[in-house]
């Protein structure tokens, strides 16, 4: 473990019955970096996120946040410790306003014990913090809309704003650009670069190699649940195993 490692994943395994969705994967995420997780469809990227976040309990292996073991904790506990995420399929709180969606992520300790559950949530302070986040993601104009009425691109941005409201040590983004138009994708790349510039540590699942190459400092490549390569984008680009994994599964990508 390097000195500035935020998350270490050690020999992580997650099996579904006979299927080894994650098979003995280890890697580190360092403070301030953007780590890309790439691989063909079904490689186990989302499962990796879900296992880190506590949605699934690992079959074996460890996940450390700093020096604290977080595997076996519940999703809400892991979120409280500073791991925030977005979902591959957007999960906004549909019948609530965009602003409320963000304020909701500021509940902190009110959400885990009975203390303060009746205290006011929409304080001036929280509203302006949430508005600042919405502005950062360029969706402040949508503030009073119902989240369920947003377009796909705006929902994705809202999810990022909501995740940032947790003030996370680590932000996990699961295919934020999937299904977006070329222009919208470009805007997203800008947003991620901006987050990087402000020092946010990011783990980004990206199906599209080209995008991953542009925004990530380092890449981890998964195939059939196995880590087949790790390194800076330039090195990954020329890695024969990686090229084979993508070419061999070309039909899946379409």
């Amino acid at each position: 473990m390097t000195a500035n490692s935020i998350l270490s994943v050690r020999n992580l395994q997650k099996h579904f019955g006979g299927l080894k969705a994650i098979d003995t994967v280890s890697f580190e995420v360092n403070k301030g970096e953007t780590l890309g997780v790439i691989g063909p469809n079904g490689a186990g990227k989302t499962t990796l996120f879900n296992t880190i976040c506590g949605v699934y309990e690992p079959t074996a292996g460890e996940v450390l946040l700093g020096t604290q073991a977080i595997h076996g904790l519940k999703p809400h506990q892991i979120a409280r410790l500073g791991v925030a995420r977005t979902f591959q399929i957007s999960h906004p709180f549909r019948d609530m306003t965009v602003l409320d969606n963000v304020i909701m992520a500021m509940g902190g300790s009110h959400y885990t014990g009975l203390k303060g559950i009746f205290s006011i949530s929409r304080t001036h302070d929280n509203i302006s913090k949430a508005e600042a986040l919405l502005a950062k993601l360029h969706i402040l104009a949508q503030r009073d809309k119902r989240a369920g009425d947003l377009s796909l691109g705006y929902m994705r941005r809202l999810e990022i704003a909501r995740a940032l409201a947790l003030e996370p040590k680590l932000l996990l983004l699961d295919e934020p650009c999937a299904g977006l138009s070329h222009d919208a994708t470009q805007e997203f790349i800008d947003i991620i670069s901006q987050l990087k510039a402000t020092g946010t540590t990011i783990m980004l699942v990206e199906h599209n190699m080209a995008i991953a190459m542009t925004v990530c400092d380092r890449l981890v490549v998964l195939n059939y649940g196995v880590k087949i390569a790790e390194g800076p984008p330039a090195a990954i680009k020329n890695n024969t195993l990686v090229i084979e994994a993508y070419l061999g599964r070309d039909d899946d990508i379409a």
Partner: peptide, 11 residues
């Protein structure tokens, strides 16, 4: 709205 998302923000 969504239990999984609720858990993901610490609820």
């Amino acid at each position: 709205n969504n239990e999984e998302a609720a858990a993901s923000i610490g609820i």
